[in-house]
Design a protein around this nucleic acid. Structure first.
Lengths: 334, 334
DNA sequence: ACGCTGAATGCAACCGATTACAAAAAGAAC
DNA sequence: GTTCTTTTTGTAATCGGTTGCATTCAGCGT
């Protein structure tokens, strides 16, 4: 008879009711009498009817979905944030979709900021253009943020985290402390660098030697190579890197050249990704509450969707995690 | 005047043409005369008109999107596959959305397999129920697969990879070789275990001691603890783990207890995730062509969407990567 | 001047649900 | 039995583009 996908009128016909009633059974069952409801449900089962979302979305002018824009899915750092987001969104009836801003062309990203595609947007990438994003769907910024954009931000105190990291090194007796920065222009890079400088200055120590980096493993490795190239007597005895991934690259490189951590150099990371607890030595780092960041971001977005237009910031606490990669400064320089 | 989002009729009115013409300018510009087109484009600019995707999708009966279902976004293994997928999908005019099958409830996943939500599905998780998936949208399975489901599969030869790993260890002189398996029931776990057994048998060696695991870092750490608990004289001198993540956990644990890799134990992983090249020692492993897996999966999906109904398998080659974590068996057992 | 062809455009039905409003049915009260 | 509520159901407009078919008009041949 009908090879096509059944529509709501097919169900209605079979159940002997109008399409309106079928629709009510679907989205507002309690207004339909028990008997009619049973009839309709049976008809739905028999026809194998499935709702067409495009049609519902068109009528409702909403999509029931939220899109998260992530700079780089390969960074395990983001996945736990996404889990936190999903844990809040799912009970609220929204589903989460993730798009990688690196993988997709820059232009096409704005396509996600359409009310006809998503009801809201959680942006985890600070390098997106502000102008395209405003005036479209509700947006919340998490972790990174976009300077020009008035939207709620959920973040950590990056500067304070850096201060804690550097003070930990200072407590261990280090005075020549280097920093490996994140990508230039990135808001996180800048805050962490500023915190580093602030902590050193507060303790009367000279400004740090800064090696360039971009948060990636490979850039950490290069920083390691640069550190090795510094004459031994001048080498920083401690290095604070702006991401755990870079710290991994750094440690791998210097260990490969016979350096022992933390005897020859103490290393601090930032993020506390799962892996670094299992390295040899385990990495000392600054823990970000990733799950909580995700949960708060999702909650703020739900608020915004519900009409709350405040654009205030949520700042979550970080935590110093002392592990084996940092130690007291060597008594006798070899 | 109008506070509402402009629709196509607003543009049409301003340009002095019909909605049909505006629509044509949008989706089929060459059929409209140059002059009219200019007029319409100007009107679009002035009104700030943006297409409503729900409406277009409803009419077209397609969405222009593909959903990838990933078991666990925190595993960096998947992100490169996703990059490969996006690199094929984007030029074809499809956009990619990612959903984490762990983060979302099981039931809600089937909601993604709706033609009104996505034009196709790439499933990277073998643990999903087959029945819900068939008969909905075109599906391609990548990496893992679902035994009952007739859909094209893009995968590697897991058994052959395991054989290569074990033969590498045998060449180095090892005879007591252990395996740390993936989660029971997983198709990859089983193929890799089978390959391990096959290679050992082919060389007249006894069946491997098998430690349980589930691909995660933590389960690798536990396997390390179990290995340490084996009396020294009986300890396997080489361990092949079914994932790199587990190998990291394993090495971290045994190094923590004074074991030196590869002197005391050789360790092989599987996957070649970026990080393992930077560990100390760098991990020997089996490389999966992740980017290529993603590209092939996306291409097969496009084929399917275009009506190609074959359900054949694509098998991509793996590669043995020799690094520092494997070495010749120690001459004199300490 | 007249018919013919093809390009450009408009009309209006359509995609598949939702929902305001109206009508009908069922109870309640007297 | 009649009137007034309250509940249940149906009618038809609507969400916002798309497209088959019809129409208009310019250009061309005879």
């Amino acid at each position: 008879m009908e090879h096509q996908r059944p529509k709501i009128v097919d169900v209605a016909r079979l159940a002997g009711v109008s399409t309106a009633t079928v629709s009510r059974v679907l989205s507002n069952p309690q207004v339909v009498s028990a008997e009619t409801r049973r009839l309709v449900e049976e008809a739905i089962r028999q026809t194998g009817y499935r709702l067409n979302l495009a049609a519902r979305n068109l009528r409702h002018r909403r999509t029931g979905g939220v899109v998260a824009l992530v700079p780089n899915l390969s960074n395990p750092f983001f996945s736990q944030i996404l889990a936190g987001i999903a844990s809040v969104l799912a009970p609220a009836g929204y589903n989460l979709l993730v798009a990688d801003t690196r993988a997709e062309g820059g232009e096409s990203l704005l396509a996600y900021a359409e009310p006809s595609r998503a009801d809201g947007l959680i942006v985890l990438d600070g390098s997106l253009p502000a102008e395209g994003l405003s005036r479209r769907v509700p947006v919340v910024l998490a972790c990174e943020w976009i300077p020009g954009l008035a939207a709620p931000r959920v973040k950590i105190d990056n500067r304070q985290g850096a201060v804690m990291a550097v003070e930990h090194l200072i407590e261990l007796g280090h005075t020549r402390i280097a920093h490996v920065a994140g990508p230039p222009g990135n808001v996180l890079s800048e805050a962490r660098l500023a915190g580093t400088e602030q902590a050193l200055a507060a303790h009367g120590l000279p400004a740090p030697r800064v090696f360039p980096g971009d948060f990636t493993l490979e850039s950490g490795r290069r920083a390691g190579a640069e550190w090795l190239a510094v004459p031994r007597a001048e080498r920083p005895t401690a290095v604070f890197l702006a991401s755990d991934a870079m710290a991994c690259g750094f440690i791998g490189e210097v260990q490969h050249h016979g350096i022992t951590v933390p005897r020859d150099v103490s290393v601090m990371g930032f993020d506390d990704i799962e892996l670094v607890a299992h390295m040899t030595p385990p990495l000392s780092t600054i823990r970000q509450p990733r799950e909580a960041i995700g949960r708060h971001a999702a909650q703020r977005l739900l608020d915004r969707i519900a009409g709350d237009d405040r654009a205030d910031d949520t700042v979550l606490p970080v935590e110093l995690v002392r592990r084996g990669s940092t130690g007291i400064v060597a008594e006798t320089p070899v």
